[in-house]
Design a protein around this nucleic acid. Structure first.
Ligand SMILES: [Mn+2]
Ligand SMILES: [Mn+2]
Ligand SMILES: [Zn+2]
Ligand SMILES: [Zn+2]
Lengths: 147, 147
DNA sequence: GTTTGAATGAAAATGAATATCAAAAGCACA
DNA sequence: TGTGCTTTTGATATTCATTTTCATTCAAAC
């Protein structure tokens, strides 16, 4: 699993003629050990804890490379912070975002995806990507709100 | 139509105890005379042309008020600029965004909206808002790409 | 008219993302 | 293993949209 992902990135790097560096190895390890939806700041702090020499800009640049390699996906929610999440092969999902506690719930809906394609077709539009986010209160937060 | 919208804002302002100012009147008129999806910068320039005294910050603040009053909707596409669009009573739509020419096509799909509600229900999630954007190439741009 | 607090506008501050550039490091080749 | 060339890095500066600050102006209640 993790080895497979490292291979994905190494193949990408090789194909692009990128050099292999200690920094990129460390950042990749750290990214693979995180859970969903890390902000650049989050990951930077995590990296800095064990490798204080690694700079901010490098984390930014490297995460962009991960996204480009297909390893990660960049997501922009409504808080002005870019986040990155793991991309599982052939999988796609969208998000429920709690405005109370910032929890993010993932979901997949094949019917919606299909309908999106039909809409695009109807407008002669070629889909390259899409985003769909539902904002509101998660179960916990709406329970608390009423208590 | 326009009178109705002015009333919407005036009622909101009254309810909130906001004062009525020349600036807000001008900005409202200008906003109502624009077409879809104005950026703050766009509107500021338009306002400045006839009312050079009105400041940047006031346009920002006032557009936020319009959104709060239900008159306008804030939309954040992937170009780092907040835009505002008119809200027609009881209407909702989403966007197809062309990454070639920046054209924005609006669409509505009741089935998708319904499915979103079902998904939320399944997760005990209370929807407050949602966004759905499809990025890609519009008919014109994909035709040009092939030519 | 006077008073009082909200609104305004110019300018400064913020904050995320990107660019700059000298120093460090990877890598091909001898 | 060393040399030379090029990429990468990291500290810092810069950019750009947005927000904040704060002295001044103004709306509106008295
Ligand atoms: Mn996710
Ligand atoms: Mn629209
Ligand atoms: Zn929550
Ligand atoms: Zn186009």
């Amino acid at each position: 699993m993790i080895l497979q992902k490292k291979k994905t990135f190494n193949d990408f790097a090789a194909a692009k003629g990128l050099r292999s560096t200690r920094q990129r190895d460390v950042i990749l390890d750290m990214f693979l050990s995180t859970h969903q939806h890390v902000s650049v700041e989050d990951l930077y702090l995590k990296v800095k804890a064990s490798h204080p020499g690694i700079g901010y800009a490098t984390v930014y640049r490297t995460l962009k490379l991960f996204a480009e390699s297909g390893l990660a996906r960049e997501i922009l929610l409504h808080d002005g912070q870019t986040r990155y999440e793991h991309v599982l092969a052939g999988e796609h999902h969208d998000h429920l975002v709690c405005t109370g506690c910032s929890a993010i719930i993932e979901f997949e809906d094949a019917t919606i995806e299909k309908l999106q394609e039909e809409i695009a077709l109807r407008h002669g539009f070629q889909i390259r990507s899409h985003k769909m986010e539902i904002y509101g209160l998660c179960a916990d937060c709406s329970a608390k709100g009423q208590a």
